[in-house]
Design a protein around this nucleic acid. Structure first.
Lengths: 104, 104
DNA sequence: ACCTCACATCAAAAGTTTTTGATGTGATCA
DNA sequence: TGATCACATCAAAAACTTTTGATGTGAGGT
């Protein structure tokens, strides 16, 4: 089953403390890059690097407005990530501790 | 809020394709190290390295039985990971797109 | 007591991600 | 048109993770 490479990409987006701090800022609504950068220990290009990873994973989407780029959480990307996590961590009840031949 | 370092640790466990393949094997029940290693492109010490990361994250637990180490998914570790993911990706409804002064 | 087996730990090498500073691009404004 | 602003991209360096092979450890068997 499973496309591990693709799933790994979603979780890779979530495994850096700076990206988690960015996501936390986005929970309260859409923000533009300069607003996101301000409270963080990140250069402009550093923020841009992390935003690309977040957008590529599907959990964040961006929107251009003139010179500004606005970022926000993607409801569908988030739902997908949660569904994948559930699938990965949920035991396969079809065969939990049963004899493979008689099924008991 | 949030302890980003601690959350990152859980997602770090999930962001490697080999660890996702190990978790997939564990969905069908407890397995010992040698059984987990067999179908994978991993040396003995390589498996041991990944198992340590999975156990340290809390999503897998181990049990000794004589010379063997058995690993299985931790229900509580999994529930915690899912809860953290939900918390991180769910918009903060207290202030979604409202005027900060009047709340409308 | 000694040997072997199953696994953990270690240190060095190989591979990957992140940071940094410089440069590129496209929108806006004078 | 030319300057500036907001952000993206690039390449090199720094920081981290993973792999590898060697060695350590503790349980069992003889």
């Amino acid at each position: 089953m499973g496309n591990h490479q693709e799933d790994a990409k979603v979780f890779k987006a979530l495994c850096d403390p700076k990206r988690l701090a960015i996501l936390e800022q986005l929970r309260s609504g859409e923000k533009c890059a300069c607003v996101l950068q301000e409270p963080m220990d990140l250069t402009q290009s550093g923020l841009s690097y992390h935003m690309k990873i977040l957008c590529d994973s599907g959990i964040v989407v961006s929107r251009q407005e003139g010179k500004w780029t606005h970022y926000r959480l993607s409801a569908s990307g988030g739902a997908w990530a949660m569904e994948r996590l559930r699938a990965i961590l949920t035991p396969d009840t079809e065969q939990e501790d049963r004899c493979p031949s008689c099924g008991r």
